[in-house]
Amino acid sequence: MGVAYLARRLLYGLISLLILSAIVFALTHLLPGDAATAIIGENATPEALAALRARLGLDQPLLMQFAGWLGGMLTGDFGVSTTLNQAAGPIIAERFFNSLALALGTIVVAASLAVPLGVVAAVKRGSRVDGAILTASYVGISIPDFVVAPALIILVASPPLDLFPSSGFVSMTASLGGWIAHIILPVATLTLVLAAHLLRQTRSGMLDVLLSDYIRTARLKGLPERTVLWRHGLRNGLGTTIAVLALDLGYLMGSIVIVEEIFAYPGLGRLIVYAVANRDIPLVEDTALVIGAVYVAANLLADVAHAALNPRMVQS
């Protein structure tokens, strides 16, 4: 894998982030209302709105506002949240690490459940084991997170079991035990949702490979079944699974609003919904950019991992 290849991918990533920022900025301005109307609410008078807009810099031309934000971004300044009136950087950094912990936790748990089960299902395709695994995954796919989350709260976080805190968050530095206890139920909810489709992805990826010519060749060469499966099969069969995992990481960073809301988990998803509902443009921009950057980085990582597993990829 060449340095040039990596540099090119990185450049494309940066360009897409720039385009993303411009689109997000334009779209948020198409919405009626701005931070001033959101801050004053049903008490607005034209004078108060004008005064507040001046204070928040909302009376500047749009292009100036965008340029100001972009300029700050280039120097690492995330700007100031207009409705919280605090530097956006620290707020986003904290939410980012909370979401990252949730996302990585979910991916590790989901992958270590789903990949082995998917391989087993593919190898034993058509058997009862395969049927059982597939049925279980169907159930997992069909129960939405807004059902799983309250069900978990009622089943394991309420009397009589009362095993975990029902919701909320404790920072890792304040109490490691508390942090783990609070993250278990959100991770469990997301794992149930994600593992199912990861499993199906692994199974179909493996099936394609197991039915391919080179696996037949390997078998005909007389290689032991274990070597065929792990060295030749899994390496190639996991390609799509890794790509899916990369997309899931992005999804987990910003789109799991419902799970974050139910468990009162302070992540990026809740933050972006708050920011949009309150027309807090700097916060919307920053959060969108961070989530976009995660997608770009995760895809890059996935490509690198895929290439490492399958060196032919780099040439193409």
């Binding site: 989350a149 309250p150 709260i153 009622i154 309420s158 919701s167 909320g168 139910i262 468990f263 009162a264």
Partner: peptide
């Protein structure tokens, strides 16, 4: 969330 509120 009211479920989480009640459980808490």
């Amino acid at each position: 969330d009211t479920t989480a509120q009640t459980a808490a």
